[in-house]
Nucleic acid binder design. Structure first.
Lengths: 137, 137
DNA sequence: GGTGAAAACTAGTCGGC
DNA sequence: GCCGACTAGTTTTCACC
């Protein structure tokens, strides 16, 4: 299991995923090597799934950031999931959920045009509820 | 504005936020120094807001990953937002939205107990629709 | 806005504890 | 599971184009 130090490492990496192992070590009172070997362990265990950036979608040219609750029409989900695979750059995350629908998408679109195209295709597979992000809360 | 190379850099960093500037340069046909200076520019412009890890919430001890659509009861949102500030580690993201409610929370909880506590308090400020993540879609 | 070369720093590997 | 020391590799800075 994860001890206190592992949790501190995770918190530091959440705040700065590009921190050097040396500095990370200082923050959690270890040497760089010890910190690095714990990070490798966390990666191998799958606790850390990868490293990425926090992107400002609007400044990156994706004007529309939205969440879409999906209510699939058919019991066969594969055509829907295949459709999503084709929409690669627009789909930031897709979660299978229990609650409001069966899937929840986090999407980004350069403009209403691409959103419209996407929704038109989506309607063939599922009903949906669309929530457009205005700002951080 | 962002040119083709900037967009490639962003895509590479989204896939691997810890890639070395040297490798990043190779991927986008630049030297490490040129890649690094473009990255610094993107950071300064606010396109890249920061670096972080993709955390497996369940393996990190947060069993419950959920999205909550918020329908505030009062026109005065500050008490609600103050309440959220107190719930720090549980709130991963909060977006002001147009669509299903006025806010959309992404939350994580160690167990149903903490979720229950949270919802009990939340009810004082807002109605909600809860969607619990089962898996990636 | 880009390069090449040198200096400063970091990561990875090792034996030892 | 962690440390100190070594080596290889990377980042940073600079003059130059």
């Amino acid at each position: 299991m994860l001890d206190r130090t592992d949790k501190n490492i995770i918190d530091e990496l959440l705040k700065d995923g590009r921190i050097t192992m040396k500095k990370l070590g200082e923050r959690v009172y270890l040497t760089g090597q010890a910190a690095a070997s714990r990070v490798i362990k966390l990666e191998e265990e799958g606790v850390i799934e990868g490293y990425t950036i926090n992107l400002n979608q609007v400044k990156a040219g994706y004007t529309i950031h939205s969440f879409i609750n999906i209510y699939t029409k058919s019991l066969e989900h594969k055509p829907f999931l295949n459709f999503l695979d084709q929409q690669e750059p627009y789909i930031m995350n897709n979660y299978k959920i229990s609650g409001e629908g069966c899937y929840m998408l986090e999407c980004r679109f350069p403009s209403n045009f691409e959103l419209d195209m996407f929704l038109t295709e989506l309607t063939k597979h599922a009903n949906y509820k669309l929530s457009i992000v205005i700002n951080r809360g």
